[in-house]
Amino acid sequence: MSAVRSKICGITRMEDALAAVEAGADAIGFVFYAKSPRAVTVQQVRAIIKSLPPFVTTVGLFVNASRCELGEILDAVPLDLLQFHGDEPAHECESWHRPYIKALRVKAGDDIAGACNAYPTASGVLLDTYVEGVPGGTGEAFDWSLIPRGLSKPLILAGGLTPENIADAVARVRPYAVDVSGGVEASKGIKDHAKIRAFINAVRKAPY
């Protein structure tokens, strides 16, 4: 039985959040990035979070947000964890005094271990696929063999994960957690509840 945690990201609707929780998701993610097709408003997220049961981690995803914008969101929305997907340096991520994870976009030749070590206060590091000019949500997987063993932080695997490839990903990478968005969608921002269930079931059954 796999002990890998699952996060369903890019949630925009109440029914999708509740379906993810019912399927067994450990965390759900909200994208506070206007250029994303999965972008949400403070009002949307407040309403969804109010309806969640306990012990579900709520995550806010940000991409080079201004201090004013991020501060206003944090004042209005009770997020448990911050996810920084842009070029934010460690001191900026730390300055909010909240638990956070840092996303790193992976390509051949990257010093992943060094990049991970640059965020010593992060709760974990999320590895996603590098696509020029796209901070995340590409739907493309990267070469998992590029991931070094023994990273200094818990590893969250993202990028092109689907119900079909997640068992192989867990077996090969042995991550702390996995993060999916496009791989469980009917269309951008609209989740497919059957795919969510299939994804989480596959994670739970994956050899680890």
Rank of each mutant, 00 (worst) to 15 (best):
A20Y: 02
E88G: 10
A20T: 06
L126H: 02
A108M: 06
V178E: 11
A34Y: 06
T58Y: 02
V131D: 01
V45I: 09
L151S: 05
I101Y: 04
N117Q: 15
C9E: 12
A115N: 14
V131H: 03
A194C: 10
V170I: 02
R67G: 15
S187G: 04
G182V: 07
P135E: 01
V178K: 02
L127N: 13
A76S: 05
L146V: 14
A25L: 08
V180Q: 03
A65G: 11
K50R: 13
V4R: 00
N165S: 11
S181W: 01
Y176C: 04
S152G: 09
R172H: 14
V59P: 09
T129S: 05
G139D: 12
V170D: 08
A202F: 07
K188H: 15
L74Y: 11
G139Q: 08
K102M: 05
H85R: 07
I101E: 07
R197C: 13
A27S: 14
D128K: 00
A177P: 00
P163H: 11
E132P: 08
V170K: 00
L161H: 11
A39G: 10
A186P: 06
C93K: 01
Y100S: 14
K7P: 02
R38E: 12
P99C: 12
D75C: 13
V173I: 03
A25Y: 03
S66T: 15
V4H: 01
G86H: 06
A186E: 11
I147C: 03
L74I: 15
K153H: 09
T162W: 02
T57N: 05
A177F: 00
L70E: 10
S145R: 10
L151P: 05
A108E: 13
G137Y: 04
P54K: 12
K188Y: 14
A3V: 14
G109W: 05
G24S: 01
L155F: 04
N165L: 03
K7I: 05
D75P: 04
S181I: 01
G189D: 01
S152Y: 01
Y208S: 15
Y176I: 07
A198V: 03
K191T: 06
V203N: 12
G137W: 02
K153I: 09
S152Q: 06
K107A: 13
F142V: 04
S152V: 09
I156L: 07
V125A: 04
T129A: 02
E185H: 07
G183R: 00
L82G: 12
A27P: 11
D111N: 05
A25I: 03
T129Q: 06
V56G: 10
G71K: 00
I147H: 01
R98D: 00
R204P: 12
D80R: 11
H193G: 02
V31K: 03
L146I: 10
L146T: 10
E140V: 13
S6K: 01
G137C: 08
A167F: 06
G182P: 04
G24D: 01
Q44A: 07
E185Y: 00
R67A: 15
P154H: 01
P120M: 06
A118C: 12
S51E: 15
T129G: 02
L74G: 14
P120S: 08
D16G: 13
F62K: 09
Q44R: 08
S51L: 13
N201Y: 08
